[in-house]
């Protein structure tokens, strides 16, 4: 990924693709208006005659149209509860993600440079890694004293494994010649760690963080759906975008479900872009390739 700039052709292509997507979606959703189910009565009869009694097929007409979603959005845009959901989710993502970086990077580096630490730490890590973060939800609700901490913990797990694996892989793949050259030129172990291993691992840290950030959003939303609770539209406690969606579903406000989904998409996009920009800034030598 070279240093990508939003602007010019790329921006227009992005706008165009999103517009086309929205148009298709609108047309599809409106099919419930212009495409009457009765038109296909003969088809239905035929299906029933062969034992088809239920409507098994998905129908895009069941999904609210973008215009309806936009209207619903207009209703919640000045709602404190909606923005509080944003705030809560962002806070959880940020908390979990930063914790994963702060713990994951040194942990990964330690495992990468120290054989003993690797021998002790890696097997445990590898056994725990395949467990999906969401499988931790019940255990973490029991373990952590508050619901907030249990969500943060699950969010942390989402990013932690990816960051650690990337750090280990990155540090291991540094060319031996760099170590030999640095050693010949009189570098101490600490110099080698600081000036070779750290910058050499940085690109992998950036990649691991970007992937980890994505997983963090996936996890936080699911965790909020399962254990979030508390917040309603207009309320200001608990919540989060995951709960916002769940609450909308329970309340039968289907447009609002999509509002929540798109909100997550936007939030995820913004965090990825921020991370990418930051990543480019800390690895300037990669811009040139």
């Amino acid at each position: 990924m070279a240093g990508r700039k939003w602007g010019g052709t790329l921006l227009w292509r992005g706008v165009a693709s999103i517009t086309v997507f929205l148009v298709f979606w609108e047309i599809g959703s409106l099919s419930k208006v212009w495409l009457k189910w009765e038109t296909f009565a003969w088809l239905k009869e035929m299906l029933v005659s062969i034992g088809w009694t239920k409507n098994y097929l998905p129908w895009i007409g069941a999904v609210p149209a973008p215009t309806e979603v936009l209207l619903a959005w207009g209703k919640v845009i000045d709602d404190v509860g909606y923005w509080h959901s944003w705030y809560m989710s962002c806070l959880r993502v940020l908390g979990g993600f930063i914790a994963a970086m702060v713990i994951g990077i040194p942990f990964g580096l330690l495992l990468a440079v120290n054989r003993t630490a690797f021998g002790i730490g890696f097997p445990v890590f590898e056994v725990l890694r395949p467990i999906p973060p969401l499988a931790w939800v019940p255990a973490s609700i029991i373990f952590w004293p508050t619901q907030e901490l249990s969500i943060a913990f699950v969010t942390f797990l989402g990013a932690f494994y990816t960051i650690v694996i990337n750090v280990i892989g990155g540090a291991r793949s540094i060319d031996t010649r760099y170590f030999q050259a640095a050693q010949s030129m009189g570098s101490s172990s600490w110099d080698i760690f600081r000036r070779i291993i750290l910058p050499g691992t940085l690109p992998s840290i950036v990649v691991g963080s970007a992937v980890g950030m994505g997983i963090t959003w996936e996890v936080v939303v699911a965790a909020e759906m399962i254990s979030g609770g508390g917040s309603q539209i207009g309320g200001t406690s608990g919540g989060g975008l995951g709960f916002f969606i769940w609450n909308s579903y329970v309340g039968g406000s289907y447009e609002q479900i999509v509002v929540g989904m798109i909100s997550i998409g936007i939030a995820g996009f913004i965090s990825s872009e921020l991370l990418r920009t930051l990543g480019h800034r800390v690895t300037p030598w990669l811009r040139l390739r």
């Binding site: 060319d175 010649r177 030999q180 050259a181 010949s184 910058p199 940085l202 690895t283 030598w285």
Partner: peptide, 14 residues
């Protein structure tokens, strides 16, 4: 005794 390596070993991050 300084080595100049076959495929080069300049630190790419410097």
């Amino acid at each position: 005794r300084i080595v100049v390596f076959q495929n080069g070993a300049l630190f790419p991050w410097k």
